[in-house]
């Protein structure tokens, strides 16, 4: 009886952790869908470089003069880009829905809104084992990006020290196009 109880407990534990992981992994897509629904826009294909962390790293380093260190862990970048579309809408309502949707699994780090919603930047953070996931959502008048990356402890320190600057650098790093 004892063994059966233990087995049931383990199965429940495994199922519970699997569902937590799945819910967490879906947040990136949920945010993309939320932007699409709220603003009536469609995200475009992921730029070539964002598919491999290594290429982004090389490009970022080259553009910054060869010395720059990559922020995101190799291969960890998830990116959705919205280009040349209309982001008209009540940004205060969008912000409230976003916070509500991510509140359970992500910690809101910093949110900046400029020019009455002309530029919105949201940075969320969560634990991912011994590393950290960072979600950076940037919405401008005609463009938007959603970037999710994994950071090492060292780079998390950078983000915490300068959330705005590092958040921008993460987006920049993810969207640099080698073909330009």
């Amino acid at each position: 009886m004892k063994t059966l109880g233990l087995k049931v407990f383990i199965v429940v534990l495994v199922l519970a952790s699997a569902s937590v992981v799945r819910a967490g992994n879906d947040d990136f897509n949920s945010v993309v869908r939320m932007i699409e629904k709220f603003y009536g826009v469609k995200h475009q294909g992921i730029p070539f470089l964002a598919r491999t962390g290594m290429n982004v790293a090389t490009t970022a380093a080259r553009i910054k003069g060869g010395d720059a260190k990559r922020i995101a862990e190799a291969g960890s970048i998830k990116l959705a880009v919205f280009e040349d579309q209309n982001f008209d809408g009540d940004f205060t309502k969008f912000r409230a829905s976003l916070n509500e949707a991510l509140n359970d699994t992500w910690m809101p780090l910093i949110q900046t809104l400029s020019g009455k919603g002309e530029e919105q930047v949201y940075i969320f953070l969560r634990n991912a084992g011994d590393k950290y996931n960072v979600l950076v959502i940037t919405i401008e008048q005609r463009d938007a990006t959603v970037v999710q990356v994994t950071l090492s402890q060292k780079n998390l320190a950078l983000l915490l020290k300068d959330p705005e600057g590092t958040g921008k650098a993460i987006t920049q790093e993810a969207t640099i196009n080698d073909q330009e």
Binding site: T92, R95, Q111, T112, L113, K116
Partner: peptide, 14 residues
């Protein structure tokens, strides 16, 4: 609610 009127809003939650 002031975010709707502001030209720049910063909200930090550590």
């Amino acid at each position: 609610y002031l975010a709707a009127k502001a030209s720049q809003t910063v909200d930090v939650n550590l």
